[in-house]
Design a protein around this nucleic acid. Structure first.
Lengths: 159, 159
DNA sequence: GGTGAAACTTCTAATAA
DNA sequence: TTATTAGAAGTTTCACC
């Protein structure tokens, strides 16, 4: 796989699409003083290179009734069970991310649940997975997301 | 703010847009046997209700040279410093999410860095924030994201 | 590489049901 | 609320720089 090098135009295109994936290519073209065809070709190239993996909606989970966030650290009986436990975690829809980690825990995951009662059920479900020795839960009282653009600007050396 | 109730059509529209925000409304319309105008009106309603907060790209951060992920638990000298420290964390682009948590740590955040050397610098920067007493780092050896659709299907009682 | 224009597709808002 | 429709707008391709 040849290393794909993004230039300033690519960066600016990404920058606009990160904010709004449905922004018309013609708008991007106007702002960057290039043609819509060029925007199209460059986006396609970044997709083909796998840099753009896709697009998704930002949803308000609170409004959808899922306002409970927690992190759960998992201790395994044996690290050989890691893969199996990860697979089982991925079948629980309320587990949004799972990591194999160094340090205290063997596995570390993030939960999104309806409320404390619901979270309890999910944590019990995790405790019940074969190979899970015990878990430790941290409840999020407030989540603050950093703007993706900050990281992108850093990546592009534009901070 | 009146409670906004989504019906099955709304769910299916979200379902398709979660996978690809640029899917033409005419395609959605065809699949759901409704008109493109209806899709348009419903999406607009969900945007107005704040359920759809926006859209963004899924990027391959590994390909962009940021393949290091870690979680950092922060102990504060005093909880009154929480807000200040959170604000400072949000100025570090490599801190992608921060939470105020119950349990062991006062604040808990996620890092995305270039490599271990770079992560070290970021962690030192966190340690240097006024009010931070000490930190504890967990390095992610492997991240596994659960499909957003799983949670949505659960929200819509379709599992 | 990029452009500009043509052909095609999609969006959107007004109207009608 | 939803469907239809038609003009406006956007996308994509391609011959040519």
């Amino acid at each position: 796989m040849a290393k794909f090098k993004l230039d300033e135009i690519d960066h600016q295109i990404l920058d606009m699409l990160i904010d709004n994936t449905r922004i018309p290519f013609t708008d991007i073209a106007k702002k960057l003083l290039i043609s819509a065809g060029t925007v199209h070709v460059r986006v396609k190239k970044m997709e083909d290179a796998g840099i753009i993996k896709g697009s998704s909606l930002k949803l308000d989970y609170n409004k959808l009734g899922y306002s409970f966030i927690a992190y759960v650290g998992i201790f395994l009986q044996n690290t050989s069970q890691t893969k199996f436990v990860l697979e089982r975690l991925n079948t629980i829809p309320y587990v949004t991310v799972a990591h194999i980690t160094t340090g205290k825990f063997n596995i570390f995951c993030k939960l999104r649940a309806k409320n404390t009662q619901h979270a309890k059920e999910v944590i019990f479900k995790i405790d019940d997975i074969d190979g899970v020795y015990r878990t430790e839960t941290m409840i999020s009282l407030e989540e603050s997301l950093n703007d993706k653009k900050r990281l992108m600007h850093d990546i592009f050396n534009r901070m």
